[in-house]
């Protein structure tokens, strides 16, 4: 019980550290290199996370990741068309839920 609490506390503190540390170090004066990274990193990281979400797709066996790829294209099309994230996420997810129940 106490050990479990310690494990959870450790996870909490280390997670908190990774989120708060940079902001505590660079409170006032952000070095130019970091403000540059702050400008360009978001686009890269979102791209990275997209790939991360797709890491478990098996493209060698049926359905070859088709539900994922079709749904992603739908999200992109709706986003480009309507510029409304809520709508593209909602419809993309519904399309995916339908596809995984129909495509096998």
């Amino acid at each position: 019980m106490i050990k479990s609490i310690l494990i959870i506390a450790t996870m909490s503190i280390v997670t908190m550290f990774t989120r708060l540390f940079p902001s505590l170090v660079f409170k006032k004066n952000v070095p130019p290199v970091l403000s540059y990274l702050g400008n360009v990193l978001p686009a890269s990281i979102v791209a990275m996370l997209t790939v991360y979400c797709l890491k478990d797709i098996d493209i060698t066996t049926s359905p070859f990741g088709a539900p994922e790829f079709i749904s992603i294209i739908c999200v992109m099309i709706i986003q480009i068309w309507k510029r409304n994230s809520l709508m593209s996420i909602l419809f993309g997810t519904i399309i995916y839920m339908v596809l995984i129940r129909t495509i096998t």
Binding site: T50, L54, S71, I72, V75, I89, G92, T93
Partner: peptide, 8 residues
């Protein structure tokens, strides 16, 4: 995934 794709 959709959140990331929309944001991307």
């Amino acid at each position: 995934t959709a959140i990331f794709v929309a944001s991307f």
